[in-house]
């Protein structure tokens, strides 16, 4: 994947939080915004944002997905970059929106213009801001999980890793079958629960086998799945403490580098 540079260092960005972060992982979104602000960027949160439409799109309900996606097209009138703290949602908006609106000339034009401004969070930090985190905490070992669409559509495994590698106290563990899907896949987990369960079982085992203190990811969909399974295992086995804690990479970076101020 070719790194993209925005023309000059932007002073303002839009933040598209995603429905999962807005409702399930709000701290991750807040930490991403704090980090951007600490780097001197003014962050705009369009209040009318809801969801990129991906859940319905991948489930095969395209009229419904389009109805939701169309509402997001009007949210970003200024020519600022749009930062998305989730690779799969960013991939949806960047790669699928233009062809998704192929039949509607006006929407298509908007989608194409928007597509070029979509940045996955870690991609934005590395390639646009040239962010150089200064580690302010003690030694720790973490493991990085990158979602499949973030990896394939946004190259986020490279940028996520680059950010972690800049933290002096952080050792990044290498898990077995790193690029293998965690088994989430949106409604796949619900339509084929047994297969999804086997996939997340293997993923959690590979992550735990590294001995890392936590899993860090730029995708909350995968985190819901991975952390949900790890916590379920803990419950099954009567453990009080989480055997595999985890958090969004934004929260991890913010904490490691001294918090919001």
């Amino acid at each position: 994947m070719e790194p993209r540079q925005a023309p000059g260092r932007p002073t303002d960005v839009y933040f598209f939080a995603t429905c999962v972060i807005d409702q399930f992982y709000p701290e991750a979104g807040l930490d991403a915004i704090r980090l951007l602000e600490r780097e001197g960027v003014t962050v705009h949160f369009p209040a009318d944002q809801t969801c990129c439409g991906q859940p319905a799109y991948t489930s095969g309900f395209h009229a419904e997905a389009r109805q939701v996606a169309r509402r997001q097209l009007d949210l970003f009138p200024e020519p600022w970059p749009v930062v998305v703290p989730s690779g799969s949602c960013a991939g949806m908006m960047k790669h699928h929106y233009p062809s998704f609106f192929a039949g509607e000339p006006e929407a298509r034009k908007q989608a194409e213009a928007l597509s070029g401004r979509i940045y996955e969070f870690t991609e934005f930090l590395v390639h646009v801001l040239g962010y150089e985190p200064k580690d302010a905490s003690g030694p720790t070992k973490v493991v990085l999980h990158t979602s499949c669409s973030a990896r394939r559509e946004m190259g986020a495994h490279v940028t996520g890793r680059a950010l972690l590698d800049k933290l002096d106290g952080v050792t990044v563990a290498q898990q077995d079958h790193e690029a293998e899907c965690c088994g989430f896949g949106g409604t796949f987990a619900l339509r084929h629960p047994e297969i999804s369960a086997a996939m997340v079982r293997d993923k959690v085992a590979a992550l735990k086998a590294t001995g890392a203190e936590k899993v860090v990811s730029a995708d909350c969909g995968c985190l819901m799945n991975i952390l949900g399974h790890a916590a379920w295992q803990d419950r099954q086995e009567g453990r009080r403490q989480l055997s595999l804690p985890g958090e969004h990479i934004a929260s991890f970076l913010l904490k490691r580098t001294g918090g919001s101020r």
Binding site: Q23, Y25, L30
Partner: peptide, 20 residues
């Protein structure tokens, strides 16, 4: 489908827009 091998999905008490 979800909770057979995972803890339940529970919305956070405050949304990101509330925290902001």
């Amino acid at each position: 489908g979800w909770t057979s091998v995972r803890t339940p999905l529970t919305p956070a008490p405050r949304r990101l827009r509330d925290l902001l």
